[in-house]
Nucleic acid binder design. Structure first.
Lengths: 290, 290
DNA sequence: CACTATAATGTAGTTTTATTACATAAATCT
DNA sequence: AGATTTATGTAATAAAACTACATTATAGTG
């Protein structure tokens, strides 16, 4: 099974809690799980009779799951149904066809973004934006899948007339890190936060006057080494062989950071960005609005 | 204005219909648009007084938009709120603060993915998967923002024991393209489909026996040159200076393609992927489940 | 094993919420 | 200006949800 066990997801929570429920609550849970869509449309009386319990039992059930009452519960349920995730068996199976797996993958990606959006570490983001704005040089470090993220970041931050670069060569990482100075910012990207070369580079950088910011898993070795951590908790499906969702969330976070820096620079900075964008026009064939 | 005008979206429909509504309906519409989240939580009485109209007016309003009544309307509203899209004026403004712009950016990204998901060119994807599976060598071409996407793709397809590489140097592109052979696949990534260097490389490749697949805008010069086009129609916000949503959709499409290839290889191929993943273990610090 | 205490569930009444039918007011048309 | 249609509000009705309390089941203890 691949499906992101979306723990914010009401349905997932219900089925996870199933063993801890008492008889009538189990009945209600099953009635809901059987056809959640229908549950959002029914009244408390209808659902109660479908489950074979009394109305107050349904009401108690709702409160047990954090809702203020039945209507509120239905609302949450409706929300969790659309959030793209059907909570279970969204795993891509070997016999999935063309009209199944693309949708599943998009759904999983969307759901990862929704989860990330609802748990954005705003304080860390704000700090990171400040540090990025003040940096005199920015080095993005990322290996493997994160290499592409680092490259994207370089391409983005380069536009802020601050020297920005991305690196993947471990020797390069060490040399750059060891030579860190005031104003240097090392931005380390690692999903696990345990990639040796990155952690070691961060260690070296910490011994200098440079700043270390990381986009990684909270509590990981890399996180512990950083001045500022943007912690992400993305359950990359472990039995999946190609990492997908984590890097997309990372990219979105970097968009946020870049935008934060832009906003901090203020209106006077926009012409600069416009000039850069304009400079690309000559690389394109004419007759276009972009 | 950035907001993707998702027409499935209830909020979008309300604001689109605004001119055709009568006085009290406009009042209700405004009250809802002002704080849709709150609207989903309020009772009909609360919303009516917030809008300055009577309860039946609210009820009529709901029915006008296809709901069976107020509760049903709230449900639909709740649904459309999560679908990620905030429908309008989700543009980041210069005076947006930390608790505004990150969310807006995520919302925009999510909405772009939802739109893309609902308009996936499945036929083209299936063809591309076949061509990628059969290719003996894969070259990913992308410049600028698409360079990071190409790099990510390389990293992903490399795992399929097919030589995969990504390139950004225009001279390299031309040389590789000109030397194309049966079994070579040139995968060109360009949001606009008009980047000269890419288009020219595709032209050269077409004169050889190689296959040209592109991930680009439908109808663009690059698209016309390709054997197979995965057409995307992503409205990158024109008044935004940093391209964001387009590349994320591109990445998601590449995930789909990579998964398609994996599925085509069948079960026997999974151990190969597992071995590759396993090979990375040594690069990480121990004590981890990943 | 009965008795008590506690937890679980249901019944019936109350309150809140939504809907309908109707009346009044506004707007449009002749 | 008067008639007709459309819009809106009032008040009564119906539906839905909730609460307090009663009953039943369950677990624990002498």
């Amino acid at each position: 099974m691949i499906g992101p066990m979306n723990s914010n997801n009401l349905l997932a929570r219900i089925s996870a809690d199933l063993p801890n429920l008492n008889k009538s609550e189990v009945k209600v849970a099953n009635a809901i799980l059987e056809d959640p869509e229908a549950a959002t449309r029914s009244s408390i009386a209808v659902l109660a009779s479908a489950a074979g319990v009394s109305e107050p039992s349904v009401n108690r059930f709702c409160k047990r799951f954090g809702a203020s009452g039945f209507p509120d519960f239905k609302l949450q349920l409706a929300r969790s149904l659309v959030s793209g995730v059907r909570y279970i068996s969204r795993a891509v199976e070997l016999d999935d066809g063309i009209d199944t797996y693309p949708r599943k993958l998009f759904d999983n990606t969307i759901s990862a973004l929704v989860l990330a959006r609802d748990a954005l570490p705003l304080v860390a983001i704000e700090r990171a934006v400040n540090q990025l704005s003040q940096a005199r040089r920015i080095h993005f470090f990322g290996l493997g899948t994160s290499a592409a993220v680092a490259k994207d970041a370089e391409h983005k931050f380069f536009r802020f007339n601050v020297p920005a670069s991305s690196h993947t060569d471990p020797l390069m990482l060490r040399m750059l890190a060891a030579g860190g100075n005031v104003g240097d910012l090392f931005f380390c990207i690692s999903h696990t936060g345990r990639t040796k070369d990155i952690v070691e580079a961060a260690e070296l950088a910490r011994k200098t006057d440079a700043t270390v910011v990381s986009l990684t898993r909270d509590g990981s070795p890399l996180a512990k080494l950083s001045h500022c951590v943007i912690g992400l908790e993305i359950q990359e499906n472990t039995d999946e062989y190609l990492p997908m969702t984590s890097r997309i969330v990372q990219l979105a976070i970097l968009d946020v950071l870049a935008t934060g820096v832009t906003l901090q620079r203020g209106e006077g900075f926009l012409p600069h960005l416009a000039r850069i964008k304009e400079s690309l026009r000559a690389t394109r064939l004419p007759d276009d609005n972009d």
